[in-house]
């Protein structure tokens, strides 16, 4: 029997992996600095929870509703803002994130400052594992496809990509929509796990946390998203025993990590698969040597 606390951490790692992976598509592969990812999460969370509460749809439909709503918003937001570059895009997404939070805090339908209560608990480990796999699978397919190559071209040099005939605006909006879709999915899982929603948690610091996960794990690397999400979910919990020094250490760790490995734990190009393959080959050769020694 799994201890519910560890089970909860695994589920949160899963949800954060979805958040980090979807941000990775926007940030790591397309090179668009977005610091409003928590807003998409909250849109997905609120809309899927409201669909469940008001219409009683099956869980999967609620999740898809939340994700779709978030994706539609992603496209609507993306059309004007993606004209902006670099830090200006970052600050526009930050502003958008804050606006979403303030609106959620003041609407009646979201429960406002009292929060949204009584969401049924439907998210289980199985759902989260499935959602992580589907997310990573689809994102991987996108990255390996023609779309993915276009996105990477935009990251490397937008002007050059444009002149090669890539419609960069179209691809950027597409990537924003897809990223928002999966962030909404993560939000829906989160809402149906926590059973309660309040805008406070989807603030600017939450977006920063997602950003840290992606950068810490390694930009443009799906494994990185998973590793970053795991570390930033588990480390604060491990630091609970040092109570008042918890966030102090957390901050110092971020600075040190960037000093020691600014490209993230996994670099952009490295992959865990070759690393494992290398270890396997090494074992194989040792095994062969041992076997040869015997005969």
């Amino acid at each position: 029997m799994i201890n519910p606390y560890y089970m909860q951490l695994i589920i949160l790692v899963g949800i954060n992996t979805i958040m980090a992976a979807s941000l990775n598509l926007i940030l790591g592969y397309t090179g668009q600095l977005s610091i409003g990812h928590a807003a998409f999460m909250s849109l997905g969370a609120y809309s899927s929870a409201l669909v469940t509460l008001h219409f009683g749809f099956p869980f999967i439909i609620s999740l898809l509703c939340g994700a779709l709503f978030s994706a539609i918003f992603g496209v609507i937001i993306g059309i004007p803002t993606l004209k902006l570059k670099g830090d200006y895009l970052a600050i526009a997404t930050l502003g958008f994130g804050e606006i979403v939070r303030i609106v959620c805090l003041n609407l009646d339908i979201t429960g406002g400052a009292m929060g949204l209560r009584g969401i049924p608990k439907k998210t289980t480990l199985l759902w989260v594992v499935l959602a992580v796999l589907v997310t990573v699978f689809i994102l991987n397919r996108i990255i390996k496809s023609r779309i993915g190559r276009a996105l990477i071209a935009i990251r490397e040099d937008e002007t050059a990509a444009d002149s090669m005939g890539i419609n960069s605006t179209y691809y950027k909006i597409l990537c924003f929509g897809v990223g928002a879709f999966f962030a909404g999915l993560g939000g829906g899982l989160f809402a149906h796990y926590m059973r309660f929603l309040h805008p406070k948690t989807f603030d600017f610091m939450k977006s920063i946390e997602h950003l840290c996960m992606v950068v810490l794990g390694g930009l443009g690397n799906m494994w990185g998203a998973f590793i970053g999400a795991s570390i930033l979910t588990v480390v604060p919990e491990l630091l609970r025993s040092v109570a008042d020094l918890r966030l102090l250490i957390y901050g110092a760790v971020l600075v040190l990590m960037m000093r020691l490995r600014p490209q993230g734990i996994l670099g952009p190009q490295t992959d865990i698969a070759p690393a494992i393959e290398k270890i396997r080959l090494k074992f194989k050769s040792i095994w062969h040597r041992l076997a040869r020694g015997k005969t």
Binding site: V215, G251, V253
Partner: peptide, 10 residues
């Protein structure tokens, strides 16, 4: 971005 994360950590 690495510098940005470092700034957030600080």
């Amino acid at each position: 971005l690495a510098a940005l994360i470092s700034a957030i950590g600080a």
